[in-house]
Design a protein around this nucleic acid. Structure first.
Length: 282
DNA sequence: GACCAGGCGTACA
DNA sequence: TGTACGCATGGT
């Protein structure tokens, strides 16, 4: 167990905001599986210190929680109106996480048209049936080869619904190197996006989530049902929106409106909407 | 029992 | 090019 002193960091917001699905809070402590490690984390209320119960070094957590991001500078760049201003003040310290690309890809593929608790359950079941047990009750995320060859009757137990075949196919592509996740890092946002969207089950929203949360593409702006409702509700009389009704257009709008760090803006708006609905700005 | 959830693919106009 | 609908599943 050791301590880390992060600048402007809120552990609860970061793990609860809906970007990751494998962390659970019990009392003051969060427990989660990252790679082959079961990690326990807590944050001291007064000092803001991060208490870390893990074999992994501090450098890992600086990387994982993007402590290298200059949040004040990011806030300044995305602070375009009262709504986002409220969100970045209220949820200050929420940081995006650098997720494992493979796990992130599958997680958001099986997130389509599902609530967050349902997504968490599916990922747990996948890990339980196809991952390795790390300690009692905690399992690693299954690797591509295992899912590619997964028995369909066992896969059905994970309750993936119509997503089952898509997951298997994606796993096969990654396992066979037909899709090399490493090259996506080096591609520009728009090309990486096009490549991901060639997979069945990945449209603009899922691609943007994966690019933002796992491939360092900060300019991704995922438009899900919450973000669509926010845009329709608050920007309804913006002239730009008289011709902007579909999700694709809303994504374009978000990128132009918030600039390079629109991905951060999106996550703050998403979290605020989930917890508070349509907030009053007066 | 209808409706929605971090949507996508397809058919049809 | 744009819209309507089906697709499994779980929670309200």
């Amino acid at each position: 167990m050791y301590r880390l002193k992060p600048e402007i960091f809120n552990l609860d917001y970061t793990l609860d905001c809906g970007q990751v699905f494998r962390w659970e809070k019990s009392g003051d402590w969060w427990t989660g599986v990252v790679g082959d490690h079961v990690i326990r984390l807590s944050q001291e209320e007064d000092s803001g210190d991060l208490l870390i119960d893990s074999q992994l070094p501090p450098e890992f957590f600086s990387y994982y929680f993007r402590l290298d991001d200059n949040l004040p500078s990011i806030y300044e760049s995305i602070n375009k109106d009262l709504l986002i201003n409220r969100a970045i003040n209220k949820y200050s310290g929420l940081r995006l996480i650098r997720q494992n690309p493979w796990e992130c890809l599958i997680s958001y593929m099986l997130a389509t048209a599902s609530s967050i608790p349902t997504i968490q359950k599916r990922i747990y079941l996948l890990s339980r049936f196809f991952g390795q047990e790390l300690e009692e009750g905690y399992f690693s995320f299954p690797d591509p080869g295992t899912l590619a060859e997964a028995d369909l009757s066992l896969l059905d137990k994970c309750k993936l619904g119509f997503r089952t075949e898509r997951i298997k196919e994606a796993a096969r592509e990654v396992a066979s190197d037909e899709l090399d996740l490493n090259v996506l890092y080096r591609l520009e946002y728009r090309y990486a996006r096009e490549r991901l969207m060639r997979l069945r089950g990945i449209g603009e929203k899922v691609a943007d989530c994966v690019l933002l949360f796992a491939f360092e593409k900060m300019e991704a702006f995922p438009v899900d049902t919450h973000v669509r409702q926010i845009i329709q509700h608050y920007h309804i009389d913006d002239s730009y929106f008289e011709t902007c009704t579909n999700m694709s257009c809303m994504g374009e709008w978000g990128r132009k409106y918030f600039g390079y760090y629109c991905g951060y803006a999106q996550q703050y708006l998403f979290y605020q909407k989930r917890l508070e609905g349509f907030v009053s700005l007066y």
